[in-house]
Write a protein that binds this DNA or RNA. Structure first.
Lengths: 191, 191
DNA sequence: ATCCGAAGAAACGCTTGCGTTTCTTGCCCG
DNA sequence: CGGGCAAGAAACGCAAGCGTTTCTTCGGAT
């Protein structure tokens, strides 16, 4: 052991360890004992920073959230939605899939976690989708009276449903089909 | 205690107790100790019938499943879908909502349970929706080349998404809007 | 140089559920 | 009417994980 870590340095090491455990074993792997072990520190150090293990998990999740699903303007509603849904599909079929399902499961059982996610993540996503639609309206490939509260979640819903409920496969054909057969017609200006 | 229960009688009492616990406390409440207590029997009796607690939970869930979401022919695709989605919406906003979320969470963590549900429940629902669409095709209010694998889950997906992920409210306006703005146009024969 | 706050280590008791075991008690069948 | 099988009751050891506590050991700020 080189030197005893303190303050921010130790803090970062703990968060990194928690993130590792979350990614590899899901939310239930983020225990005080496991994090302390993985960060080569002790539980007392953790309890000095978080009131309980759920708080540490919430913190870890919010920290991780900034990463996923970038969001840029491709110049068309179709292109934007393809990019967004392909981002989700990649997450749902990649190595993170299990962890995502675990997070949803954890949120079901932990009201505080559910609130945190709703406020810090889902709200963010909703706003992004609303912007995407707004751009389309200004551009003219989305009708002005589109029901935003439906359009913003319609595509994602199917992917989540497959991930969490039906278990049906998620692939690029599905994404393209959703965009071209469902979403674009739904938001298109009426002839 | 009148007389010592045996065989089928005891069996039924155990299943009823498990069902109670499932409904009131979710899947995690279906523990061997709790079921034995609620059925006024002992754990040894349970272990004589099920290899472990997860098997008992699976059994209980499958037994319960036959109840939900009836399915009749209303004479139109619109009517059928309204009935189906209103059924889901009622489940998702009623007292069973927490239990349903818990079941999904449990299935995430228990591969065997997930398989059981996929085989005994979700397969059943998929078949029902395929029939519903087939009736529409024959009747003429659903186009023959409708992408069944999307149409059969599109409406439900949004409701599940709100229940499990976004937490957004589910009400009858949403159901009607989904049917009239999304589903009916999507399956309607092309002009 | 020293000293106080934090890090680190290691126990502790508590709780919950598991799955097993032992023993007694009753009921039904032959 | 009696013997065997299953019900019922209670205890056991095990495993995790929690949150706490105690004690030692650093090391940076004064």
């Amino acid at each position: 052991m080189a030197t005893r870590r303190r303050g921010a340095e130790l803090d970062d090491a703990i968060r990194a360890a928690a993130l590792d455990l979350l990614a590899s074993g899901g939310p239930s792997a983020v225990t005080m004992e496991a994090v302390a072990g993985a960060a080569r520190t002790s539980k007392a150090v953790l309890y000095r920073r978080w009131p309980d293990s759920r708080a540490l998990l919430r913190d870890t999740l919010v920290g991780m959230a900034r990463a996923a699903i970038p969001h840029e303007d491709t110049g068309s509603y179709r292109g934007d939605m393809l990019a967004v849904l392909r981002g989700w599909a990649a997450l749902f079929t990649g190595p993170q899939a299990g962890m995502l399902r675990g997070v949803v499961a954890a949120a079901v059982q932990d009201e505080q976690l559910a609130e945190t996610l709703a406020r810090d993540l889902i709200g963010h996503r909703k706003a992004q989708m609303a912007e995407l639609l707004e751009r389309g309206v200004e551009r003219g490939d989305v009708r002005a009276d589109v029901p935003v509260h439906i359009a913003r979640e319609l595509g994602q819903s199917v992917l989540w449903h497959r991930l969490l409920v039906s278990g049906d496969p998620i692939d690029d054909d599905l994404v393209v089909e959703l965009v071209d057969e469902v979403l674009v017609p739904f938001v298109a200006p009426r002839a």
